[in-house]
């Protein structure tokens, strides 16, 4: 059944009929599996990988290291949960190394992100300190190269 997830991960718009053929299952099996996967939160959402750099819309992205004092009963989880609920936070990870949490944060401009850090993040109990790295350029997003370079063409017929 991992087959079905692979197909969806590659192109979430693939029809259930086509998935059934490609995975060698019946349509009913595929429908049932996907429903279950959605219920179990194995499949979280279906969405597009957007290259915002190609759109006029300005968007700034920062990686923020957060140092946290763990809480007695909850460790890092309670603080991480409070931080992750902010919509500006696109991804949040607990990481090994010199800091504890690594966040990917987006905003309309540097100012908005600076505000988020000074007004929200540092006010959360348990947050000891932050280091903000503004992203200067994106090369790859979620497995996709943003500038693929020129397409290499195959010979149309090769025996």
């Amino acid at each position: 059944m991992k087959e079905i997830l692979k197909i969806l991960e590659d192109d979430a718009r693939t029809s259930v009929e086509q998935i059934a053929i490609m995975a060698g299952k019946s349509v009913d099996e595929v429908v049932a599996f996907i429903k279950q996967a959605e219920q179990d939160r194995v499949v979280l959402r279906y969405k597009a990988v957007v290259n915002w750099d190609r759109v006029e819309d300005e968007q700034v992205r920062a990686l923020i290291e957060v140092k946290v004092t763990p809480e007695p009963d909850f460790g890092f989880d309670a603080v991480a949960d409070r931080i992750a609920r902010f919509p500006q936070v696109r991804s949040a990870y607990l990481a090994s190394g010199n800091y504890d949490l690594l966040l990917v944060v987006v905003g309309k401009n540097e100012h908005e992100i600076a505000n988020f850090v000074s007004e929200k993040l540092t006010h959360i109990k348990g947050v000891q300190g932050t280091v903000t790295h503004f992203v200067l350029k994106r090369y790859k997003e979620d497995g996709e190269m943003l500038e693929a370079g020129e397409e290499v063409k195959r010979q149309p017929v090769i025996l």
Partner: peptide, 27 residues
């Protein structure tokens, strides 16, 4: 190659979907 004519024709056309290759589409 018995299908030279076919190759020449193909080379002159645009918008062809080719199932005629004999190699992976991966780089």
């Amino acid at each position: 190659s018995g299908i030279r004519k076919f190759f020449d024709l193909l080379a002159s056309m645009e918008g062809v979907v080719s199932l005629g290759v004999g190699e992976p589409d991966y780089t």
